[in-house]
Amino acid sequence: MTVPARPRVRLATTSLAGCFGCHMSLLDIDEKLLPLLELVEFDRSPLTDIKHCGPCDIGLIEGGVCNAENVHVLREFRANCRVLIALGACAITGGLPAQRNHLDLGLCLQEVYLTEPSLSRGGIPNDPELPLPLDKVHPLHEIVRVDYYIPGCPPSAEAIWQVLTDLIAGRLPQLPERLVRYD
């Protein structure tokens, strides 16, 4: 009896209100990238330039949810990815962008675009092309259901590799103590 070859796993990645540091960490998998590429094919990702997420096995999202576009992208991922992973501090806690959460958004915009002379040039931008900011920044799990979390700022390449290979092998991802980092 032969075991049928497993089709490659389809993986989508994106960064919402993030700094792409988590994506850099993904690339840091280094020499393991090649074996990983034998296991996965990329859908929407900064690495492919595919603009919309199609049906996928795994979605990896870094960054918090800070504006309307982030919400659309997150929903698109949730609708298309069987497994959704929050990648890094911002996706899991709101992170750096959420440091504005104790400030009033209206006052922030006013300060930056109206009051502060060095910055104000023609008022608060209102181009419909620009996504509007939410009043607060949220981690992914407050907007959609999230299946797994890889903490860290950024998570180590090893932690990402561990979770991805666990999932591809059909194991419940288990990070050992030294890979559960929040900084």
Binding site: A68, V71, Q110, N126, P133, D135
Partner: peptide, 19 residues
């Protein structure tokens, strides 16, 4: 979520579908 955009709509004066 739509209400969470209200402060930004107010500040920008926008009310287009994307807002």
């Amino acid at each position: 979520l739509d209400a969470a955009l209200a402060p930004a709509r107010r500040m920008t004066g926008r009310d287009d579908p994307a807002s």
